[in-house]
Design a protein around this nucleic acid. Structure first.
Lengths: 353, 353
DNA sequence: TTGAAAGCGCTAACAT
DNA sequence: ATGTTAGCGCTTTCAA
């Protein structure tokens, strides 16, 4: 490996501008106590020489690393990538996170960490020791893993927990899971549905529970029973099929079903169609996530859009702006929305769109 | 920002093991001239303390950064992410690149760089100065941008050019575009098609041209004319519709059409279906990319699978193993394959699957 | 085979 | 408002 040195360093700039290193450093970091004339002269040298500070050196000298680390569960992420099933969670997180980082001169680094491993701490610790990020963004199920949040708190690294509302260290952010399920349910109620089934996601994610609660409360508010209308899947297609069959086998078959993610909604659609049920005429479906695949089904699925990009954008912003300052007391809620498409209609009736 | 120092440094390890810093360094880097007993003792301390070297410090002292930088065209990538159309190029590149990096103790950093900007060099130069990667992976259209390849060569940073076969600095890798188009064409010929149309991609990518050549040569080899059967799109849906209409309006309408990517194939399918043509009975379609969406169309699309993950994996491997050693003389070819699904059949005949 | 010294590029702390 | 000094954690000389 060729020993490669920085081409243009702060020394070159200092020499070129005829000032001390420190002054250049002050200009780079927009620090006070630099006269405008001086600042201009140094900036001119910087521009002329095309100087860019080395983040390694910056980090070394005890300043920031300008790195935000976003971590996902390894197994699940790799499985999703390999399955190529049309989900775009990672893309949306990069979209929201990278762009916001860039606005602030930061970079976002994406890493995979194994949740189930007994050495999560070692694995995450290694990433942190190696990269020394200024902030970390956790996604489910990491965001509720005490080994992880505890380590981060101990290391005093600011971090965001996406999909978590628990109190404790770190900035909690949610996409309003309970409210979203409520909105979906209310939409169906407004269409005239009374028997509204629900396919829940894996217990490993507490957002699964929040979605169930939103549905249950909305049902209760509308004066309908929800007992016996809940089946649990694991976010995978097969579990969706099982849940769909269970719900469609009920003596009082639901006229509408909400699925906790797109894969299970797709499974539901396939299962219903396979049984000869017409969607949405005989069964309305609302899905969660709004990943690309929902626009390729027939009919296209009405879905709760999970604002993943907006949530990461917000997380980055809070991490950078707020730094290691006081964390928000309450979870930050990013509003989601219902996207109406062709899979919802009045019970036994016409498509509503 | 709290001044955060490395928790465990090489000093702690040295003290713990009762040796010099240098000896610890030698162990970390697997250098020779360390007695097994010594190596074991030091390794024991490392493990016990949970020591992980800081890449910032490693980079500072002139060694590697253990970072591989992969860059994509900014505008196109963001547009794809926002459109949420079911492509998974980025996911596949992360899958192949990140996992291979991890195998070697490296990390892959993904960045967006604007091709069309007049300051590509500044933008890329900044990323390189800031991160000091040990290698860079270029994707189209960056991989053929002389401003970029020239800069990298000048900086003596090893780099890979994906989707490029030109001679010159950097390791060239392709997914066998010409061969893939040939395979697709031959598959249709074998089914009995003679009038096989082709929808090309944007001229900005030379792989568009290679695909056209593969089709033309295969047609010539089979003894069929290709004149008048070629229309050019820009890889977008709308351009696919235009090309599809042009081809389907021909007096001698093709019985099969190959589209240079999934979006255009989808446009073709929609257009054909809209005209009342039955796919595959009246029109066979083969698509390029094999992104998730091809399994959500009806019928599912027969497609050339682009081995994106495998290509990135190979690029990373060559970059890390080979380092700044001699580059391969010939472009590295990663074999692609035809995935048969429901959109191809004998002309006027039955589905072949 | 091991250790000591010097320095990478930058910033914090302390002058001036 | 600007400059000087010391040191971050590591690796590369060079010495023993």
């Amino acid at each position: 490996m060729a020993r490669r040195r920085q081409a243009i360093t702060i020394k070159h700039v200092a020499a070129d501008a005829g000032v001390s290193l420190q002054t250049v450093s002050r200009v780079i970091n927009n620090e006070p106590n630099v006269r405008p004339a001086m600042q201009e002269r140094v900036q001119a040298s910087i521009d002329r020489l095309g100087y860019v500070p080395s983040i390694a050196a910056q980090r070394m000298s005890g300043s920031r690393s300008y790195l935000i680390l976003a971590i996902n569960d390894r197994d699940r992420t790799i499985a999703d990538w390999q399955a190529r099933q049309g989900g775009d969670w990672v893309d949306q997180m990069l979209l929201g996170g990278m762009l916001k980082c860039a606005e602030h001169g930061y970079r976002m680094i994406f890493e995979l960490v194994d949740t189930h491993s007994d050495h999560v701490e070692r694995e995450l610790g290694a990433a942190i020791a190696a990269l020394q990020p200024d902030g970390v963004i956790l996604t489910p199920p990491h965001s509720e893993n005490i080994l992880i949040t505890g380590l981060l708190a101990k290391l005093k690294i600011p971090f965001a927990r996406i999909g978590s509302i628990a109190a404790g260290p770190g900035i909690a952010l949610t996409m309003d899971d309970e409210g979203s399920a409520r909105i979906a349910t209310e939409h169906l109620v407004a269409l005239g549905h009374q028997l509204i089934g629900f396919i829940a996601g894996s217990d490993e994610y507490s957002l699964s529970g929040w979605r169930v609660e939103g549905w249950q409360k909305a049902m209760a508010d509308a004066g309908f029973a929800h007992e016996g209308l809940l089946y649990r899947g694991d976010f995978g297609y097969d579990s969706g099929v099982a849940a769909a069959n269970a719900l469609l086998d009920l003596k009082d078959r639901p006229t509408a079903i909400i699925a906790s993610n797109d894969q299970m909604a797709l499974a539901l659609l396939d299962t219903a169609t396979g049984r000869g049920l017409k969607v949405p005429q005989e069964l309305s479906i609302i899905s969660f996530d709004n990943s690309p695949l929902v626009r390729f089904t027939s009919p296209q699925l009405t879905a709760i859009d999970q604002p993943i990009a907006a949530t990461f954008s917000k997380a980055v912003e809070l991490l950078i702006i707020n730094g290691s300052g006081p964390e928000p007391e309450q979870p930050v809620v990013i509003q989601s929305s219902l996207i109406e498409r062709g899979s919802t209609a009045q019970p036994g009736g016409n498509a509503n769109r």
